[in-house]
């Protein structure tokens, strides 16, 4: 029972990342009709926003400590962050340690800008091109972006820890009335799940309860008619691309304490997220979220020891097996709409 609950929590956690990335993918596909293989790169750029802010906050000047030696036997040069000088060592260190949550504020304008540049600079030229062309150009863009990040930050993962207040583990077992220390779960992973739910709710609320969202939903259903009503739907779709980039970027920012970011992390999520979108139903936002959590939980349960003992390697293929079964029984996915990608 403990193992099942633990893997369920793991599944929700993985599902959070899948759902956030798949949500952005679906937003772009639903509004612009573009299959964006560079979406994983947006997740990665978001993560590197956290790395960048951490480095900016850690910008230092050096003082020479005559009492210590460096590796060459010279007096040790100690880095002193400027924020220590400005706010005092304790407060300055706290600011550096909170760089990941602070990076949320940093990432929103950066990702919006990246999204607008990407859409206006490249992707708009491929709106009327076949999906194969879109896939090729966005996949190429993803490779370019990850190579740029590697050139600046190197190939090895960069530690980006959570604030010390959230680095420990939570006794989830005791919380739900089981024996203490039976289900221990990291605080930050619980925060990630809560954050993902908040972002998903905010996106749905934005689309459901604002005039802007209403126009976008109308555009998703019938772009030509909305255009004939005199509404500049292209401008709104550009904003939606920026919002999708922000969603992916924020998912990346908050993911950094879970796994140290590296230039390849976007590609690691991209394929699975596309499977999530297809299983959820192309163009269906609720479908993307539902499929994200469903496949995340299934993948985690497939990693249970008894399951692996029974069917070795099942955890590696479960998502694709489920995708095949769902597409055979429901060709449009769980919540797909008629007519999407069927022309």
């Amino acid at each position: 029972m403990d193992a099942i609950i633990l893997q369920f929590l793991n599944g929700l956690d993985k599902g959070s990342a899948y759902a956030l990335i798949a949500l952005g993918l679906t937003l772009i596909f639903g509004t612009l009709g573009v299959v964006n293989f560079a979406h994983g790169a947006l997740f990665m750029i978001g993560a590197f926003c956290a790395v960048t802010l951490q480095r900016l906050l850690s910008l230092s000047h050096q003082i020479v400590d005559e009492t210590q030696k460096d590796f060459l036997g010279n007096p040790l040069k100690v880095d002193v962050p400027y924020v220590h000088d400005w706010f005092g060592p304790a407060a300055g260190q706290t600011i550096i340690e909170w760089s990941v949550p602070l990076a949320i504020l940093f990432a929103i304008p950066v990702m919006a800008l990246v999204g607008v540049i990407m859409e206006r600079g490249l992707i708009k030229h491929f709106y009327k091109r076949p999906h194969a062309d879109q896939i090729l150009v966005t996949f190429g863009l993803a490779i370019v972006l990850q190579e740029i990040i590697k050139a600046f930050y190197g190939a090895n993962p960069i530690p980006t820890p959570a604030p010390p207040a959230f680095t420990g583990s939570f006794d989830f077992g005791a919380f739900i009335g089981l024996d203490p220390n039976t289900i221990i779960y990291p605080y930050w992973r619980l925060i990630y799940f809560a954050f993902a739910m908040s972002v998903i709710a905010a996106v749905f609320a934005f689309l459901q309860f604002t005039t802007f969202g209403m126009v976008v939903r109308a555009g998703m259903a019938d772009r030509e008619t909305v255009g004939m009503l005199g509404i500049n739907i292209d401008k709104r779709f550009t904003v939606m691309f920026a919002i999708a980039a922000c969603v992916a970027g924020l998912a990346g920012v908050m993911y950094t304490p879970i796994n140290s970011p590296n230039y390849h992390m976007g590609m690691d999520f991209l394929v699975l997220s596309f499977v999530v979108v297809v299983v959820g139903g192309m163009g269906s936002l609720p479908g993307a979220v539902l499929a994200g959590f469903l496949l995340g939980v299934l993948e985690s349960f497939a990693s249970l020891g008894v399951v692996i003992d029974l069917i070795p390697g099942i955890n590696q293929i479960i998502i694709y097996l489920v995708a095949i079964v769902i597409l055979l029984t429901r060709p449009r996915g769980l919540m797909g709409r008629k007519g999407v990608m069927e022309e």
Partner: peptide
Amino acid sequence: TQTDFSSYIAPVLQ
């Protein structure tokens, strides 16, 4: 190719 090891760490606890 594994990046998130939570599914492998959790069974250790059991």
